[in-house]
Amino acid sequence: MDKNNLKMGPHDVGGEESLPIDTTDNDMTHWEKYANALRIVVSSKRIITLDELRYHTEALGAKYFEIGYFERNCLSLHNICIQKGIYDKELFQKIKSRKVSEFDVPIIDLPDVASINHIHDGKPHSHNVSDFQEDESGDGPPDYYFDTLAIAQIFIDQGLITNDDINLKIEQFDNVFPNRGKAVVAKAWYNNLFKEALIKDAKKAISDIGIELETFADIICMPQTDTVHHIVVCTLCSCYPRTLLGMPPSWYKSRSYRSRVVHEPREVLAEFGTIVPENKEIKVHDSNADMRYLILPPRPSNTEGLSEVELSKLVARDYLVGVRLPN
């Protein structure tokens, strides 16, 4: 049977031939964090479900890979709102124009450096032009940021969400969620009973130490062993235990990683610098539905006597997805 006939859409990439993976994780911009937070708030309040969002993202057709991940999310959210009559195009354009105009920052006249001569510590002192440059990037926000701001404003005006909901989510993704997985793994390294409980029923074990993951999904914990190497992917979108590990890295969402891990895991792992011995089984977990995965790396050598907190500093996010191993 020709697999192409079964392909559901542009998102269904598992098994495609694809390019090498860019294994660096690019930091998220503010607008990406905002778009992400809005999507999570809207879906966790069940205003629009995750499956609706996925459906409309998949329906973008050729546009799916032409625009970036967060722009895709924003556009599908907008399309659902129009379809469901949450707002109409006229209202959206009105609010969006307002958001754009609010963002117009006047150009500041930078001082003429030649005219600045003053005294520091008793010595004459002058400046270079670079001392007065405003920021390092110079790039403004993309257009879809204003779409996101407008959608959020309409939801706020309708009393469906608040600004605080979005700000809290941004804060949690920056400072709370990424540390949870590290703490859990450090505890498992430190305490064998907890490790056993984690492997048996991860969601319960994590809840029992006071971490509420605020997710419907179950968590499955797979320990790396001497005989099996585990690695996680979501070939259909970017399923990831966000409230346990934070945002997935950019490569996790990339077409290359999603296409290739399933059919050439050894080659992909080698691109991350992880050489899996020939006699070891590789087990790929396609996180394609309602489960989420935590890979438990082996405790690094020469760490006897370290405290749980000290151990947590040795936990890298990449271990928990299975693309890298500690020494």
Binding site: H263, E278, I282, K283, V284, D286, N288, A289, M291
Partner: peptide
């Protein structure tokens, strides 16, 4: 799963 899988015979993949 794959016609020309180049890895080991023991390799597996799991899905929901």
């Amino acid at each position: 799963v794959w016609d020309n899988y180049s890895g080991k015979a023991s390799d597996t993949i799991e899905l929901e």
